[in-house]
Design a protein around this nucleic acid. Structure first.
Lengths: 243, 243
DNA sequence: ACAAGTGTACTTGTATACAAGTATTATAAC
DNA sequence: GTTATAATACTTGTATACAAGTACACTTGT
């Protein structure tokens, strides 16, 4: 691995983070971006050397990434699974599942506060678009959905979200960075879908919510190929993990 | 903590397990059984002393239990959350959610192999009942549902199951042990519900599946009070964590 | 009596050492 | 050339040491 390479994960999100968290986030980005290819065997000792930390934070990272299903811990070494089209479909299955569940609870609640919070986040997203800040946009996008999920106060649904979130976040980060470069016009549609989502919550309109959610997902899924192509570009010149 | 106390988690399920796994499973049982009360603050050093291991396996256990939502890691010490009625309801929400999702996939598949596998597991359950083996019965009960979930080959649904499973398993273990002593007649209904479930899969009958799932859950949920009463009995004479 | 500073006893995160186990390779015997 | 055995280089899990940080109590001065 190229030691002089800059980090993929936004460093300002890691200001107070431990070495273990840094390794976890960076390794996750390397895997999801495809820079570390699916099938690669990761060694604790090698990773410790590459990241210039001891085995303790590496072990922590591997345990977490294994629970996120992007690596598989075997008897000797961790095998990279990564995110293929199939996994991305599956992640959106789960998001659809939990956001639908959440919506069923929402329609029985007072959603004024939530709608205000979501509107704020959406405005943040618009500002991020205006200044072409892909990382900030991704952060607000993830926050948007997390706010909805948190609002129903369901600890086990939140648990699922917490397990899914890091992988989602990494994927969205990479996807949005690519679009700011190559598909800037996409953002109009994304904003419109989020407006639709807020509208659905305000009107407690089940069908509208499902519609906006689906369109949001279709947007992302349809663009996966582009993302991988873009990844190839990004990872050009990077030395492989197993040399 | 009483050092001479026997273990709550079946020791034969831990034959090849590491110290970290043992601590994780035993601590989980102590928390879910209520022997370690909700609100208790756990210290890594104290736990290490109590379990007679170093901090490494303890840290591992605390990280896992935190991801399972039964403890909360704070700046200093881990706070026990435990399983109240609310959490149990939530767990069953999630089970209903994922098993419904799985069923939608099942109806589009060839389920012959699955039905055979489930029938085998159900027979195992019957044998466990006959010999009053609560632990074996719990194992097969959990396996029954895991087999269904695995059959659709969805890695992120399986991820949710894997996060939920340990807590479920512990809860079922405690619940079943209690019933073998005090509510032996319950098992007829449980077996009948599982037969209904198999029937639903065979006939690809959505409504029947939901019905059997609901009845199964209602069975368990209705009995929660009894369980906690029973727990009080079990934990009588056990010294508290914070002494 | 009370505020401010000091010290002590904890905490977490990381590094490192070591035992035990497992693949792989090399060597020797046939 | 093939098989059995031994040596090696790795692996994992655990223990332990240590640095840095945090909470709490205890002085000490006012």
């Amino acid at each position: 691995m190229d030691e002089s390479r800059e980090f993929l994960y936004p460093s300002k999100w890691l200001l107070k983070a431990s070495a273990g968290d840094r390794v976890t986030c960076e390794l996750r980005m390397l895997i999801i971006s495809g820079e570390i290819e699916s099938g690669t065997i990761l060694s604790e000792n090698k990773l410790a050397a590459d990241f210039a930390v001891s085995r303790s934070p590496i072990r922590e990272a591997l345990k977490i990434l294994a629970s996120e299903n992007i690596i598989r811990l075997e008897r000797m070494g961790a095998v990279v699974i990564g995110l293929s089209e199939k996994e991305i479909d599956e992640i959106y299955d789960v998001r659809l599942l939990i956001e639908s569940f959440v919506f069923e609870r929402l329609v029985k609640m007072d959603t004024n506060e939530l709608v205000k919070e979501l509107s704020k986040t959406l405005e943040m997203m618009k500002v991020a678009i205006k200044y072409s800040d892909a990382d900030e946009f991704s952060y607000q996008d993830v926050l948007f959905h997390e706010t909805i999920i948190r609002s129903v106060n369901h600890s086990y649904i939140l648990m699922i979200w917490n397990n899914l979130k890091p992988v989602m976040e990494s994927f969205i980060l990479l996807s949005m960075r690519m679009r700011f470069k190559e598909k800037y016009e996409d953002f109009n549609r994304i904003v419109k879908n989020h407006e639709l989502y807020i509208e659905a919550i305000k009107a407690k309109d089940r069908d509208l919510m499902i519609k906006s959610l689906h369109e949001n997902f279709d947007d992302v899924q349809g663009k996966v190929e582009d993302l991988w192509m873009s990844q190839q570009m990004l990872s050009k010149g990077v030395v492989q993990q197993n040399d």
